[in-house]
Design a protein around this nucleic acid. Structure first.
Lengths: 342, 342
DNA sequence: TTGTATGCGTTATCAC
DNA sequence: GTGATAACGCATACAA
């Protein structure tokens, strides 16, 4: 690796001057600039980010912590984050937490030890100590917290919407799969659905579920149709679980959507490829990642500005502006057609 | 952040001593050690990885470059890499290349600028300059190169296997979807399949395809049944493409597997959830990531050893030991049952 | 407009 | 056994 020193001597100037031209800071004569630029090009010089990071106490790295990239919901989030970050010259240190407290802690240590300037985390406990202690901006993704910045979809409304669409399409005996109680967004949508059902005076049952794993979901699907055989509409806690319900319905010889309608949640890429293609409530995962990254970048730039200048009254300061993105009903073929519907 | 200096003064010793105890290098009196350890704990000291990296010219970071984490084949690879790296206290800077040369170059710059100690890349051009110039170990994942270390699945055999199984199950008019020509593993499996078919004296046709996108695949599926309406067996270039073929077969009212058998490639998580569940050639993606990480770690440790000591004749040096992992036929329901088959 | 010198937090070398 | 101190590559305050 060629260093700034080598560039300097090659160009016949001091390191300070080289630094000035590559950072476009301070005055430098046009001729000198050209000499330096030539040297930079000639030696193919790329500044050492580590040295920069050490001196400035801040890097161009951000930390991204997701529960499990293997869960089909997360790749889109990750991609949204990466694209926006890449555009703004930030790189990503990535980790899976498995929703495990210890792994989460470890990664937060990793992040701080590497001088990351911000983190995006999809955690079940945004109020955990390790986040409060962080002295850099944090944005919570897909997980809400009362007093931290976060980007999430409108789960409660999504739940209502699922219930509305199901009722509008004629289901009378609806079973709702609750979703893991420790995952806030799962509970939001569950509550939304139940509220709507209650207001509509529809008979409904609830089956408790404790994970989003397909394997577990298969047994809940069985339980569902065993305990509530008259079910003619299932609101699943997410698309994976909905998939298991579809399978079980097939197995029982039930016609979808004539005997039973099914609505999922998320709209993961898989959903449109199922048979029948799954009607679901879409969370705009890519956009969520994108927005979270944008918010974080804003916070990062803000915190730099705050430190270096006197408070600027003209620039609006972000203190608590979480972003809630809209969800949308995606009508496919596990729900019946309905005339009035646009 | 607390620094080594603070720990030193808190413990009443010099920074050198603190460094010795945290790195377990050199002599240090038992009492001193205890004092330092207490200070470390008290102040919750965590060494600054950036400063370490600057001094030692090597970090605990590795670079991972994948085409697109949004493609369902890659999350498992990534997870395999992450798990193994995490176990060995390496962290990951992650990026998507979109198979775009420029993005690839940019990420290689990022990696070197951040002092990563190794990179794992899934590139179409392992012989590209940017890899040759790298002075750190590189392992190519899922992409082969004649003279670089790589971890990949036995694509040629996978192709043969697909053809064998299809023939053994009675297909007489087989169509093979070729897969993108610029993606080496796609061509390996294609050639394998074609060779097997030729040896078996089976009539077959080839439909060219240029991507793995589902959207494109839909039109190739149409083309396939239009040009070769007698097709009673399809060997798809991967599971995504196979999915499109299933859809088209449904649309045409063809019975699967009675009218047409379909075999995919990869065994992405989606495949078992399709209807009918897709028979496919499984690549052990998670294991591949895991092995690639293991190989890279070995190379990293080796290169450190080589630098610091005189060549050790007793330790075997890895110069060219690529790892080829076995593929396997996963029998599901897009292929017919056959008696002889164990 | 440019150069010198200092420090960022660590590790390693060398005296003591 | 332990402590100064130089060095890693860079950016900046300050002097010139």
């Amino acid at each position: 690796m060629t260093t700034i020193k080598q560039v300097a001597s090659y160009a016949g100037v001091s390191v300070a001057t080289v630094s000035r031209v590559i950072n476009e800071t301070g005055y430098v004569h046009e001729d000198t600039r050209r000499k330096v630029e030539a040297a930079v090009k000639q030696l193919n010089y790329k500044p050492n980010e580590v040295a920069r990071s050490l001196y400035k106490k801040k890097s161009r790295l951000i930390g991204l912590l997701l529960p499990d990239i293997t869960n089909p919901y997360f790749p889109l989030l990750a991609r949204g984050v990466e694209d926006r970050m890449q555009e703004n010259d930030f790189r990503i240190i990535f980790g899976n937490s498995d929703e495990d407290r210890q792994k989460e802690l470890d990664y937060m240590d990793t992040f701080t030890q590497n001088n990351v300037v911000g983190v995006i985390s999809s955690t079940n406990d945004p109020d955990a100590d390790c986040y409060a202690k962080l002295k850099i901006p944090v944005v919570f993704l897909d997980r809400t917290s009362s007093d931290s910045l976060s980007v999430y979809a409108d789960g409660a409304y999504g739940g209502r919407l699922a219930a509305q669409e199901m009722v509008a399409r004629g289901s009378k005996q609806i079973t709702v799969l609750q979703g893991p109680t420790h995952i806030r967004p799962a509970q939001d949508r569950f509550r939304g659905a139940v509220e709507e059902l209650q207001q509509s005076n529809i008979t409904y049952h609830v089956v408790e579920t404790t994970s989003f794993s397909f394997k577990d979901a298969e047994s809940w699907a069985k339980e569902l149709f065993r305990k509530h055989p008259d079910t003619d509409g299932v609101i699943a806690s997410n698309d994976i679980v909905a998939t298991a319900v579809i399978h079980e319905a097939h197995r029982l010889g039930k016609k979808i959507p004539d005997d039973v309608q099914i609505i999922g949640f998320d709209d993961i890429p898989l959903s449109s490829l199922l048979f029948p293609p799954l009607s679901t409530i879409r969370q705009p995962a890519y956009e969520m990642g994108w927005e979270a990254a944008g918010l974080l970048i804003q916070l990062i730039e803000q915190s730099q500005a705050t430190k270096s200048s006197t408070p600027n009254l003209h620039s609006k300061i972000l203190t608590h502006s979480s972003i809630q993105l809209p969800v949308k009903f995606i009508e496919r073929e596990t729900t019946r057609k309905v005339d009035y519907h646009g």
